[in-house]
């Protein structure tokens, strides 16, 4: 009987603590330091446990703060489309002024985003663009399939312009990643016909799976010279697989990586360079575009004046800020994300 009461009170306690924690939260996001907030902007991504998205938080929040807005930066911890849609609905219920949405595919969030727009909420897509009717603007770096070009060029600098390579991508169903793979294949056919892509594998945003996939590729293709990571989280595990199989100097990992994840791979010698952009800049760019929409600021075609992004342009509903980064072991320590 005693233990029964004990456990009952524990459960009551959890409910109580929840409500207390809640009170603190609500006040925290409202107004801080006495300055009146102009409203809230929600910045959402579809896999918030990825360092790639986690590292954008600070700059996104700062971009909002500079203009007097609160920013909620959140996402589903794992890829989970039904839950992601529920999260967007919840943000709509919270009366946000604008949504900046990074979705895993271009159509599944469109109905819920249309609902948001009908309620007067401004919608900016970033990372992957969504179908037009779902958003007011797309905020991007450049046409991201085009990023395949510097990725190939950096690979050629490392392994030369002939031989076999493989690509490890995120989730195989991700259209945006698929579009870049197609661009890569098109580009090498045109410019480096002696390069041959022998395999395209998915790692499902899971580093351990990526490691195993890389090991399999190394075993299956004895003549392979490079494994290209099509996502920012792949280079570390691929580099480790190359190191463990004793293939340093024979097989290189190329492609994308965040600088922090690339550092150990540069040290082991499994990679010479990595291509990326700053996800924080990207999220901040989306926030600034959203604020311009909310405030009705003029954003003409051609060159666009967006604070902090001097090269920004607009073509139709697409805003680009044109800034990529190539990391090598000489400059990688200058970045921290």
């Amino acid at each position: 009987m005693k233990s029964r009461k004990l456990v009952l009170s524990i459960i009551l306690l959890i409910a109580f603590t929840l409500s207390l924690a809640a009170c603190g939260q609500d006040q925290g996001t409202g107004t801080d330091k006495g300055s009146e907030s102009k409203g809230t902007i929600a910045v959402l991504n579809y896999v918030s446990s990825a360092p790639y998205f986690a590292c954008g938080e600070e700059k996104a929040i700062q971009a909002g703060k500079d203009a007097g807005y609160d920013v909620i930066y959140t996402g589903t911890p794992e890829v989970d489309t039904p839950k992601f849609i529920s999260l967007i609905q919840d943000m709509i219920q919270k009366d946000v002024k604008a949504l900046c949405v990074a979705s895993g595919d271009s159509t599944s969030v469109v109905p819920v985003l249309k609902e948001a727009r009908e309620k007067g909420i401004k919608v900016v897509s970033w990372d992957l663009d969504v179908a037009e009717e779902g958003r007011d603007l797309y905020a991007g770096i450049m046409d991201l399939a085009e990023l395949g070009v510097p990725m190939v060029e950096e690979m050629v600098k490392t392994i030369g312009d002939e031989g076999e390579f493989a690509i490890i991508t995120g989730v195989l169903t991700n259209e945006f990643l698929q579009a870049r793979i197609n661009r890569i294949l098109e580009y090498i056919e045109e410019k480096y016909p002696k390069l041959e892509c022998v395999a395209v594998e998915g790692m499902d945003e899971d580093p351990e799976k990526c490691f195993a996939v890389a090991q399999n590729i190394i075993a299956a293709y004895p003549n392979i010279k490079a494994i290209m990571s099509n996502v920012s989280t792949g280079m570390g595990p691929i580099g480790k697989a190359i190191e463990q199989e004793g293939m340093i100097g024979k097989i290189y990992v190329t492609g994308q990586s965040t600088p922090n994840l690339a550092k150990p791979v540069f040290e082991s010698g499994a990679a010479e360079s990595a291509v990326l952009w700053d996800p924080g800049d990207w999220a901040a760019f989306a926030v600034k575009a959203a604020i311009n929409l909310v405030e009705g600021a003029d954003m003409p075609q051609g060159k666009v004046n967006i604070e902090g992004f001097p090269d920004a342009t607009r073509e139709g509903d697409l805003l680009y800020f044109w800034k990529t980064l190539v990391f090598t072991k000489d400059n990688v320590d200058d970045f921290d994300f």
Binding site: I14, L18, A21, A22, Q25, D26, G28, T29, S48, S49, I72, T74, G75, T76, P77, K83, S86, L87, D90, M91, Q93, K94
Partner: peptide, 22 residues
Amino acid sequence: VSNGMNMMGASQFLQQIIIGSI
């Protein structure tokens, strides 16, 4: 829990801890 904590503005990671604890 999921809806309520979103309304409170609690982090998604915290939600997993709460669900697990409950």
